[in-house]
């Protein structure tokens, strides 16, 4: 599904993440680690948001650096703490991202209803609570026809009802061969999602956790 080779990420000359070789199959993958361990950095690299050295290859075909457009059509990302211009509305951002990600007709309305974004569709973002911001970022992450969706801390600030609907939607997407990677400081076992594998991010690298909850 996704292969990472010789990945190195450094900030101001200091290496924070090194992944010599990592192959992650399709499914739901949970990345865990303490604060500052590099989970968000890793997801951002995979999402194409951060420069790095090494290779990230999707389906042995799409290189994040050599085929940046094809790759980004297939990999979406939801930030842990989204920040958007406060004068925009959910409608402005969604229509822009939906066009870029080539969202099929009707998808925006479906996702907006699912995540409860319709209720504040034309409200300026400055009026949003953190939960509303999170819902908007999750909506943006599902636009288009992604093969891999990266959800950084999707449970934070999300209300219970929306979270339940989101997890049902994730299960449905998994059946349609979409993979989901998520990070969380909450207990992901409570989500009831069929976790394919758990990965430990620590000491500047990533390895599969052996004590992990999987189903």
């Amino acid at each position: 599904m996704l292969t990472v080779t010789n990945l190195t990420k450094a900030y101001e000359g200091k290496t924070v993440l090194t992944v010599p070789k990592l192959t992650i199959p399709p499914g739901i993958h949970y990345f865990r680690g303490s604060n500052g361990s590099g989970k968000t950095t890793f997801l951002r690299i995979i999402a194409g948001l951060l420069p790095f050295t090494g290779t990230v290859l999707l389906d042995n075909t799409y290189d994040s650096q050599r085929q940046p457009v094809d790759y980004r059509l297939r990999v979406n990302y939801a930030e842990a703490e989204p920040v958007y211009p406060d004068f925009l509305t959910a409608r402005d951002l969604t229509s822009f991202v939906a066009r870029a990600k080539r969202a099929p007709p009707g998808q925006v309305d479906q996702l907006a209803d699912l995540l409860g974004v319709t209720a504040f569709w034309t409200q300026p973002i400055r009026t949003y609570s953190s939960g509303m911001l999170k819902k908007l970022s999750l909506l943006l992450a599902w636009l288009g026809q992604p093969q891999l969706v990266l959800l950084d801390e999707p449970l934070t600030t999300l209300d219970v009802e929306t979270a339940a609907r989101l997890f049902d939607f994730v299960r449905e997407q998994i059946r349609q061969s979409v993979s989901v990677w998520l990070t969380s400081h909450q207990d992901v076992a409570l989500t009831g999602l069929p976790i394919t594998a758990t990965w430990q991010v620590s000491n500047g690298t990533i390895h599969q956790a052996t004590d992990a909850f999987t189903s």
């Binding site: 999402a47 457009v69 094809d70 980004r72 990302y77 930030e79 920040v83 870029a100 990600k101």
Partner: peptide, 16 residues
């Protein structure tokens, strides 16, 4: 600075 701070998602969009 505006785009780097408020529109982090731009780099994830499939534009060359």
């Amino acid at each position: 600075q505006f785009e780097q701070h408020y529109l982090l998602l731009l780099d994830n969009l499939p534009y060359s």
